[in-house]
Design a protein around this nucleic acid. Structure first.
Lengths: 175, 175
DNA sequence: ACAACCATGTAAGTAGTTACATGATTTA
DNA sequence: TAAATCATGTAACTACTTACATGGTTGT
C-alpha cells in the first residue's frame, strides 16, 4: 500500500491541506497513483497519529482548512520505504478484459466504448504535452527535475500506447 | 468490478475448475487482470448462485476438482457487460511513486529495486515474445484471433515501455 | 441574511489480501 | 504407507468506493 507514502511525498514537496492534496492527486502525482478525498483525510489522520506529519493551525473542527507538514520522522520513513522491495503491480484493466470477452462471445458493441476511451486518452495526452512544453521546454537540469521529467514522459508514453491500442481495436471491431 | 466477467470470459473460452482458472489468471487473462485463488473460489460460488455458471460433477466436498461451465444466462450477462461504459482505470503504480519520492527526498537507494524490476520485465517480455512466435507467427486470420493478438501486442508494448522507463531511471539514479 | 459552494468528515458496503485449514491425490 | 503436493475453502483484515452530513466561507 503506497497511499501514505504518496501523501508523504506530496507533502515533502510542499505542505498543504487535505483538499489541496486531493487536487494534486488529480494532477501530477495522480499520473501514477489515484486516491479519493475520503481516503486522503483518513490517511492524513493516521499519518499524524504515527508522528510522521503535523497539522499546523486551527483545530476548530470541520469546515476549517487544516494544513499539514512533514516531520523528520516522516522523511525518514519515506526514505526507508523508497528502497523497499516489492513485486510488480498486479494489473487490473477492465477495458482489456472487455476486449477479450468481445473476442470470446462478441460482437457486442464495444466500438463506442473504445472510441470514448480513445477521446479521453487523447485529451489526457494533450494535457501532459502541455505540461511538457510549460515545464521542460529547456530540458531538465537537476537530478530531481530529470526524475520528474522521466515520470512525465512515462505518462506520455502510456497515453500514446493506450491511444495506439484503442485505434487498432476500433479498426478490428469495425472490420 | 470485472472479476466475475473475467471469469465468465475465461470459462466461455473453456470450462474449467477453480485451480485451472487460477493458473489461467497467471497467464493469458492475467496480462490485464490479476486475481488470487481465494477471490476466484468465492466469485465462482457467487456466479453459480446467480445462475450464470453451473458446476458439473462431484459435490463430494473439499479436495475434489469441480469444473464449471457457463450457462446461457452467463453469456447474456457477459454481452451486456461488454458494452457498459466506465471511466478509465485509476492507476496505482507504487514504483512510480517511489521515483517521485526519490526526487523529493532522495537519494535513497532506489537503483537496486529498479534493476530488479528491469529484470522481471525483461523476463516477462521474453515470455510474451515466445507466445507471439508460437501462436501468431503466421499472423491472425479470424476476428477473435486478431483481438487476441492485439491484447498480446498490448502486453508486449507495456513491458517494452516499463523496460525503457527502468533503464532511463537507472541512468539518472546512477549519474 | 440567504444561497451556493468548499473543506472536512462519518458510515456502510465491496473488493482484495494474507494466513491458515482440510480433504484428496500423487509420489518416494 | 508416509510425505508432499494439490484443490478447495474459511476467517480476519486492510484498502477502496459510494453516499451522505456538517460546519465555514464566499458572493449577492
Amino acid at each position: 500500500m503506497s497511499l501514505p507514502h504518496a501523501l508523504l511525498t506530496s507533502l515533502s514537496e510542499r505542505a498543504g491541506s487535505g483538499s489541496e492534496l486531493a487536487r494534486r492527486f488529480d494532477k501530477s502525482i495522480g499520473y501514477f497513483w489515484h486516491a479519493t478525498h475520503q481516503q486522503i483525510y483518513r490517511e492524513l489522520a493516521r499519518l499524524e497519529q504515527a508522528g510522521w506529519i503535523e497539522s499546523l493551525p486551527a483545530e476548530t473542527g470541520r469546515g476549517r482548512k487544516r494544513a499539514y507538514r512533514v516531520l523528520p520522522a516522516g522523511v525518514a520513513e519515506l526514505k526507508r520505504w523508497i528502497a523497499e522491495t516489492e513485486g510488480p503491480r498486479p494489473l487490473r484493466d477492465a477495458l482489456m478484459v472487455r476486449l477479450r470477452a468481445e473476442a470470446a462471445v462478441g460482437p457486442a458493441g464495444l466500438q463506442e466504448e473504445m472510441k470514448r476511451h480513445l477521446a479521453l486518452h487523447e485529451e489526457r495526452l494533450a494535457l501532459y504535452r502541455s505540461y511538457e512544453t510549460r515545464d521542460f521546454a529547456t530540458g531538465a537540469d537537476t537530478r530531481a527535475r530529470q526524475l520528474h521529467y522521466l515520470l512525465l514522459k512515462g505518462g506520455i508514453a502510456m497515453e500514446e500506447q493506450a491511444i495506439e491500442m484503442a485505434r487498432e481495436a476500433i479498426r478490428i471491431l469495425e472490420s
